[in-house]
Amino acid sequence: MGAYVARRLLLAAVAIFGVLVITFFLSHIVPGDPVAAILGPQAPEDVIEELRHRWGLDRPIPEQFLLYLRRLAQGDFGQSLATHRPVLQDLKEFFPATVELATASILVGVAAGLAVGILSAISRGSWLDHLVRFVSLIGLSMPVFWLGLIALLIFYYNLGWLPGPGQIDVYLLRPPWVTGLITVDALIARDFEVFRNALRHLVLPAFVLGSHAMVGIARITRASMLEVLGQEYIKTARAKGLPERIVILRHALKNALLPIITVIGIYYGSLLEGAVLTETVFAWPGLGRYATSAILSQDFAAIMGVTILIALIFSFANLAVDLAYAFLNPKIRYE
């Protein structure tokens, strides 16, 4: 097991290094001029030249890459051209918002997905099952950014049930920075108003972002519940006269969990993808927005930093899924 993990980590490291090389050269061969973009169309030429020189952008690309690697080895991610700050500091600031959103989304996805999946499994073939299936297919077919716009329009603008874009209402002050997650920090600071407010702000984006995960989880839940429900021991449990609730939740669900966990892991990773679009629509100060604007302004160091972080998360999510799998099912062995 330990050897397996070590091998996987090594492979992940190789993959990430490859990603690094590709991204670096991809972002540098474009003939754009990030310095000019950041300084605006009216900046004088000599100022632009000066800054290009100061950032080392006037050197050959392979040399820039080596320089970057050397700095990276020392834990220095470089400075963002756009924010003039160390990229690491930027990431520390923007990453928690995405973690918070992604976690809320996966919670929504898991809770609702499990519920809906179980529901349609036990009412298999009924109108409810078909309805759920059809509605979830429709949900899966809508572009997230469009869904987000429509949700804002209905629940925020027309009905006024939920707050609009952003993490908390503007007149509230953010609790002191401990973990970076607003909800957690609010609890630590015992500021329950901010906590409530931040939760309410999470609802819309979490539902929008979690919708695809919800559908995926619901489907896999339904499938594996159906499989498990057909097994002998469930029939035995029923025959023993156990209440249906206990049969379903305790016996069936427990055994159906394995494939469900795999899917959850996969979706947690792919939430990053949806985050790019959702964060744009909901003005969420997270990694997705940071990545988009970095690509838009060709902010090399920032692009590289985000790349490394995303690749890391993705690889670890995959590894975690496999390990959870092994943990839950001792039959699976690793050489």
């Binding site: 492979l11 992940a12 190789v14 993959a15 990430i16 490859g18 990603v19 590709i22 991204t23 991809l26 972002s27 061969i29 474009v30 990773g269 792919s270 990053l272 993808e273 790019v276 679009l277 990545a291 988009t292 690509i295 838009l296 060709q298 692009i303 790349t307 995303i310 690749a311 993705f314 690889s315």
Partner: peptide
């Protein structure tokens, strides 16, 4: 397979974004 790993170490949209940006 290492090459595919590299490509799969990335969410599809983000990768497509980076490539699209590099290509115009």
């Amino acid at each position: 397979m290492r090459v595919t790993d590299m490509f799969m170490a990335f969410p599809r949209l983000v990768l497509a974004m980076a490539i699209a940006a590099a290509l115009r």
